[in-house]
Design a protein around this nucleic acid. Structure first.
Lengths: 193, 193
DNA sequence: TGACGAAGCGGACTGTGGTCCGTTAATGTC
DNA sequence: GACATTAACGGACCACAGTCCGCTTCGTCA
């Protein structure tokens, strides 16, 4: 027993986790998310199917793992970064900054985020990341003196669902920057009492 | 040639369409939407699989067909029914009435609506019904003098996505009536300039 | 170093949504 | 009523997500 309490990841498990992530990233980049099957990934990674599923649960879990790094980075900027995204600015301004930053993150990897939010019914609302965004919006809305901040946070995040964003950007050809501004404005409205 | 222009539905096609709808309704009621497979429906209806798919496209299409009647009824009430849902009332009041009525409709058949909105990625935003709700909200928001009515209509409808409503009602145990009121209030806010 | 327990492995297998295409029969014509 | 046309039928078939479980390998301890 080297570790205390927490069981350390076994060497072969770590190796395979990285292999799978690398393979998935490669294939998604090469063919697009929709055209890649779990069998493809397994073959490319040179591992068994059980290995993939043991580690990532399902297709959405794999997508979440691939997004994890960028999401955590944004979360850090929100908690400890510079204003207006980080602490220091007025809650309304922070909310607008969050909308902008989150939109950027989603637009950069729409298909992957869609996958992570739609693999299972209700997946979007159950992720740890979603709980974080929600908590943050609730807090900022409450700080702004908004009525019913809980509901309004959900409303704002519903508008930021990946499928909605993909629809706006891909199907309706909206410019992400304009969209970010328009949504920031609505966020200001929601921050009203 | 008995018909002019429009090709009439063939007798066997009509019979099978009704058989499938009846079978689906029966099975969904008996076992719950999630526990019924397309093979189950085909077996219960006594038709072939190709028949089902030729007519309804996919699982979501079948769900939409089952919802169609109630949706069309609500649409009629919106267009020609009594105020405040129908014409006559102030746009803000009509919007609130729509939110209430739509929520009722969804809550009454959540699982079916979820199915219709999630069978294919982006399905929700592509249905004819969605275009109708959207058009109506846009119109009422514009009439209220709201800024950016297009975006705000999308925002409101995003909050009324079936998965979101199911989450609020089933997972968070919100009372539909309270939810309807809270969402109506937010709709009022969105109707602001 | 050898042996043991358990975490991890991997691929055959299953369930289900959706497609394909040869066959059947409803409809309109003469 | 016989015939031609063609929409509609239906079930074998396919693809792919996800499961199961006997086997392997890792890490530990004596």
């Amino acid at each position: 027993m080297l570790e205390s309490g927490v069981v350390r990841e076994r060497a072969d498990a770590a190796r395979n986790r990285l292999r799978v992530l690398a393979a998935a990233e490669r294939l998604f980049a090469a063919r697009g998310v929709a055209a890649v099957t779990m069998d493809d990934i397994v073959a490319e990674a040179g591992v068994g199917k059980g290995t993939l599923y043991r580690r990532f649960g399902d297709k959405g879990g794999l997508a979440m793992a691939l997004l994890d790094e960028r999401e955590r980075e944004l979360q850090q900027r929100m908690l400890r970064g510079a204003a207006p995204l980080g602490p220091g600015a007025a809650p309304g301004a922070r909310l607008a900054a969050f909308v902008q930053a989150y939109l950027d993150l989603v637009v950069a990897q729409v298909d992957l985020v869609v996958l992570s939010e739609t693999s299972a019914p209700g997946a979007r609302l159950r992720t740890g990341a979603h709980a974080f965004w929600r908590q943050h919006c609730r807090y900022l809305l409450a700080e702004s003196g908004a009525a019913d901040p809980d509901l309004r946070a959900d409303l704002l995040l519903a508008a930021l669902a990946a499928e909605q964003i993909r629809h706006w950007v891909n199907d309706e050809q909206r410019i992400p920057a304009d969209l970010a501004e328009a949504l920031s404005n609505v966020a200001q409205l929601l921050a009203q009492p």
